[in-house]
Amino acid sequence: MRVVIAEDSAILRDGLVQLLALRGVEVAAAVGDAESLLAAVAEHRPDAAVIDIRLPPGHTDEGLRAAVEIRASSPGVGVLIFSQYVETRYAAQLLGDGGAGVGYLLKERVVDIGEFVEALQRVAAGGTALDPEVVAQLFGASRRASALDALTPREREVLGLMAQGRTNQSIAEGFVVSERAVEKHIANIFAKLDLPQSEGGHRRVLAVLRYLEA
């Protein structure tokens, strides 16, 4: 897996490069601003980009806006936002663009580099990796009547865990139920969100995107 990193703190940037390298991840470029990020992605075409939100020159939402641009110009590049902040405006656009391969993790809540690498691999492979706090804030910021209203409370819980990138086995263990029970909940979710069988493996991602768009 080849990645590009955009982090304005030189210490954090170099530390992340070293940690990823120790786990076999090739860092094609590590940059400190949004303009350099866009250039690096265009040059190296990585599997994924790890992006902080607040980058020079304004240190507001330059990284997130660059991520949205990357999703539009290079949809095959996974985008993992890695920040201290939850920015709902552009995050909703990034996560709700109908594509796959997006993630949003909060720095202070990542305590295991192995789990971080696993999340990065999921994003690079076209999956999702969302911190529960990000999901909660995005859902709260955009709550309105939708097809999600047809879901039961447990189905909403399952869909929320799917948004975090949890597997059926992990969800089952958390609820102390069988995987078959989780599969039934997911089948109901797909039916209620009108995601037909023809969508194949992408139905899981599409269900998550519906959840975030709702």
Rank of each mutant, 00 (worst) to 15 (best):
K107W: 09
T60E: 14
A191K: 07
I5P: 03
E69T: 15
R109A: 03
Q93T: 14
R109M: 00
Q93F: 01
A67Y: 05
G58C: 12
D61G: 00
D14M: 12
A29Y: 07
E87M: 02
E43D: 12
L195V: 14
F82G: 05
L12T: 11
E87K: 02
G140T: 07
V117A: 11
G98Q: 08
I186T: 14
Q18S: 11
G114F: 04
R180E: 15
V17D: 06
Q18Y: 09
A66C: 09
G114P: 11
I81D: 05
V3D: 10
A66M: 08
R144D: 12
V135F: 09
P196E: 08
R65S: 06
Y90K: 01
S198N: 10
H59Y: 15
L212I: 15
V135A: 05
G24I: 04
G101E: 06
R144A: 12
A49H: 03
Y85I: 10
L105E: 08
Y85F: 05
A91F: 02
A181L: 11
Q197Y: 06
P153G: 13
G140V: 03
A191W: 00
A136K: 02
A145P: 00
E133V: 06
F82V: 10
G58S: 13
Y104K: 04
A172P: 14
R109D: 07
F82T: 11
A28C: 12
L209S: 12
V134M: 02
M1E: 05
D112F: 04
D112S: 15
E26C: 12
G58T: 07
V117M: 09
Q164V: 09
P196R: 05
G160T: 10
V27Y: 04
F116Y: 05
P153T: 13
D47K: 14
L159G: 02
R122H: 08
V68G: 03
A48F: 05
H59L: 14
I11Q: 08
L120E: 09
Y90E: 15
R143D: 10
G127D: 15
A10F: 07
R143S: 11
L130Y: 04
D131V: 01
F82M: 08
A136S: 10
E69A: 14
E108V: 05
A6P: 08
F82D: 04
A191E: 07
S73F: 00
V102M: 07
A28W: 02
V41H: 06
G24D: 08
M1H: 05
R180G: 13
I81T: 10
F190W: 13
L80E: 07
L209F: 00
L16D: 01
G174Q: 15
K107N: 07
L106T: 04
D131H: 04
D47P: 01
E35M: 02
S170Q: 15
A28T: 06
S146F: 04
V177W: 01
Q137V: 14
G201C: 00
A29S: 15
V27F: 03
G98N: 07
E26G: 11
I70M: 03
N168M: 13
D97V: 12
E199P: 01
D8S: 11
G103H: 03
V176D: 11
L64C: 04
V205A: 15
P132M: 01
S74Q: 06
V111G: 02
R154H: 00
R204L: 09
V158F: 01
E108Q: 14
A72T: 05
A136E: 13
L106N: 00
V205F: 01
V86Y: 03
D61N: 06
T167P: 05
S83L: 11
